[in-house]
Amino acid sequence: MLDRINQLADPIGAIIGFLLTIMVLSYIIGDNALFRLAIHIFIGVASGYAAVLILYNVIWFQVLIPVIQIFTTGKMDGLVAYALRVVPAVLLGIWMLTKASPRLARWGTPVLAFLAGVGAATVVAGAVRGTIFPQVGASVNLLNTQSAPAEISNLVGWFINGLIVLLGTVATLIYFQFGIQRQEEGVPVQRSVFMEYISTVGQGFIVVTLGVLFTGVYIAALTALIDRISFLWETILRLANI
């Protein structure tokens, strides 16, 4: 019986997916009830799945199962380490639940502050170590001759590429530099002509970057559309073969 259900699970799932895909694609002709129904189903399923995942994958697997394993296997030496690692997190999590009640919301502020502080420290430290220092170093080393290719043909391309990247980086950063020396009262605030030119070059790089980003988003959407068309066709073929 279970094998039969497993065999039917894929066709049933394919049919449901087919119908939902048609409902979503009906947005081509404008907003309609089928499209809204599909969106509502998606939101409900996603919420339910997230809740089940948290309960199953976090509460059950990472909190309860270790305790059960410790007591069933009799390895009590791991109980202290487990308690030191999990109990504070569980207490803070329960404490955090006070935010759900408007009357008790302010009691959860310390936990939220702790969470925000630790999160900010983690993000800042990671950004400094993982993005700012390495990327500034990489920009400085763009024209480092020690990393230049040995072939002349590649050397020209390497040099031009590095020059463009260096110019784009500097020009884009200058575009976002709005600090100007204090002027006398009544004198219009304006950057120097050189800075204005560099800023315009930077603006051009930003436009190109936005175009690239838009292209990436468009290609991703187009690929998703192609994938749905392919799915519909495959489902039709499967249903026809059945």
Partner: peptide, 14 residues
């Protein structure tokens, strides 16, 4: 494809 332009500097860096 939409994330490639922002990840590529980490790949191109030295």
């Amino acid at each position: 494809s939409q994330a490639e332009p922002l990840i590529r500097p980490y790949y191109e860096s030295t």
